Amino acid sequence: MFGAFRPSAIAHGGLLWKNPFRMSNTRKANVRKRLRAVDSVIAAVAESGVKCKALDEALALPKESEMLAREKYTVFSRAAAGYRKSIHKVPKFTKLTNRTSPPGF
């Protein structure tokens, strides 16, 4: 058990995913950058003259500059205490469209 192939401490148990409690300033800046990039794509498609239901829904969403910090960095979650969950705890949060929460949350 004490040779070159002994099990590591992680294999014995402990934290596997080390998510920080709070989002760092760098992560928040990257979230804002991604939101602005999506806003610019939506605006470019709208200027091109394309008409579709998905574009209408995307244009109805608030822009990054219009969003509250709570909406930028957290998402609605029924299971979480306070019904809000930090966005860095959500898998693939960049692929979700969670710019608006249910009324009252």
Rank of each mutant, 00 (worst) to 15 (best):
S8I: 02
T26I: 07
S8P: 01
A54G: 00
D39K: 15
F21E: 08
P91S: 08
F105K: 07
A29L: 13
R6M: 05
S86D: 06
H88G: 03
M67E: 06
L35D: 09
W17P: 01
E66C: 09
A4G: 03
F105C: 10
V50F: 13
Y83W: 08
N30I: 06
P103V: 07
F5Q: 04
V50Y: 12
P7L: 11
K92A: 04
V90D: 02
R99F: 10
F93D: 05
S101W: 13
T74G: 01
L61C: 14
A58G: 07
M1Y: 02
S24Q: 03
F2L: 04
A81C: 02
E66F: 09
A81P: 09
A29Q: 14
S86P: 07
A80S: 15
R70V: 13
R70H: 02
A44R: 13
K51P: 00
W17K: 06
K95S: 06
P7K: 14
I87K: 14
G14E: 01
S65R: 14
G3C: 05
N25S: 14
A37Q: 15
A60L: 05
R32I: 11
R36P: 11
G82Q: 04
F76A: 07
S8A: 06
T26V: 09
T100A: 02
E66Q: 15
F93G: 01
L61Q: 15
G13K: 10
A80I: 02
N98A: 11
S48V: 01
A37T: 13
S86I: 04
F5E: 11
G3W: 09
N25F: 11
K85G: 00
F93V: 03
A69Y: 11
S65Y: 02
V38N: 15
R32K: 15
V41S: 12
I42R: 11
L61I: 05
R70Q: 07
P103T: 06
A58F: 01
V38C: 14
R22W: 08
S65P: 02
T26G: 05
V75W: 10
H12D: 03
E47M: 03
R27A: 05
V90A: 04
S40C: 09
M23D: 06
K28V: 06
R84M: 08
V45P: 00
A58E: 12
F105N: 03
K85I: 08
A11I: 07
A44C: 02
R84T: 06
E64T: 15
R27H: 05
C52G: 05
K95Q: 12
H12P: 00
T100P: 01
R84A: 01
S48E: 12
K51G: 01
R99S: 03
E71F: 13
G14W: 05
D39S: 15
E47C: 01
V90C: 04
R32H: 12
R99Q: 08
K18E: 03
A46D: 12
I87Q: 07
R78Y: 00
